[in-house]
């Protein structure tokens, strides 16, 4: 009997170890594949890869300049709208938790997190692209902001809720007003958590594809900063190019994947170093 138990335990340990290894194997394989396939492209295309426009089918490597600039512009404009809004609504729901709107903010921001990103793209297409008569960077930014708001709100809420009550009570005991307690105590203690949420939101929108499919117009021939003009993102370019039969476009897609991965890893490392230090 005792032997059977031991056997079961051994079997369990081996299974869980190998299943866990299987679970995390793909991410390393993905990253390695991206470096393996993308690095030769970046090396042979050189720095121009970040500036030039994409090549014609079947000829050369060109670059992804317009898409790269588009990605940053889209992420920048959507953060400009999304981050202050998320911050304000998170503050509201943490500071005034016992009313209908705060409870709604909590429930809805969780619910919006679950909404398929492609539906957000459809929504923005219907309420903005159709009335304006054209695709635009602004429409794409709106779609991304909608994706970002529930995400950042949830993060900031969590960060603010983790501030110990005693710190706030100390502030009140000094006779500070609510506003002062919030900004001088809560926000400054939760600073790192809030910043992490903001960075995570930024990382999320730089990688999003689905909300941009029907909103930005996929203009990848020239660099444009016009918020009302057509634009593109790296993720859209990868999505489109990998579905074509052209070998050089496949190579461009892998090169772009390496650029996108580098941006993601940079932000990831930044958030890691932030959260690492927050442990008291």
């Amino acid at each position: 009997m005792a032997e059977l138990r031991e056997l079961k335990e051994k079997l369990f340990l081996i299974t869980s170890l190998s299943l866990a290894a299987l679970a995390i194997l793909p991410i390393f394989h993905i990253l390695l594949s991206i470096f393996y396939n993308g690095l030769p492209v970046l090396i042979s295309a050189g720095v121009d890869f970040l500036v030039d426009s994409p090549p014609p089918p079947g000829g050369g490597l060109g670059g992804i300049g317009p898409s790269l600039v588009g990605t940053f512009m889209l992420a920048f404009i959507s953060s400009l709208v999304g981050i202050p809004l998320s911050f304000a609504s998170a503050l509201f729901s943490v500071e005034f938790p016992d009313n209908v709107i705060s409870r709604g903010v909590r429930v809805l921001s969780k619910a919006l997190l679950q909404i398929p990103s492609i539906l957000v793209g459809m929504l923005v297409y219907t309420i903005m692209v159709v009335p304006m008569g054209k695709f635009s960077m602004l429409a794409g930014s709106l779609a991304l902001a909608i994706m970002m708001i529930p995400y950042v709100t949830t993060y900031v809420e969590e960060a603010l809720e983790n501030v110990p009550k005693t710190y706030r009570e100390a502030g009140y005991a000094l006779g500070l007003s609510r506003t002062k307690v919030v900004f001088k105590i809560s926000v400054s203690i939760a600073k790192r958590g809030i910043l992490t949420g903001v960075l995570m939101g930024f990382a999320k929108v730089t990688g999003e594809t689905a909300p941009l499919l029907f909103t930005v117009g996929k203009q990848r021939q020239m660099i444009s900063l016009d918020p009302l003009g057509y634009t593109d993102s790296i993720s859209l370019l990868i999505f489109d190019f990998i579905q074509t039969p052209y070998a050089n476009w496949h190579r461009v897609a892998w090169g772009s994947a390496l650029v996108l991965t580098s941006i993601f890893l940079l932000i990831f490392l930044a958030t890691r170093s932030l959260t690492r230090r927050v442990v008291l």
Binding site: P26, I30, M200, S235
Partner: peptide, 21 residues
């Protein structure tokens, strides 16, 4: 760390790897 990376990786990269690898 691996799980955090997986959670944040842009989905189009999963698709690219899925299709080609």
């Amino acid at each position: 760390t691996a799980i955090d990376l997986m959670a944040g990786l842009p989905t189009v990269l999963y698709g690219l790897w899925g299709l080609d690898v």
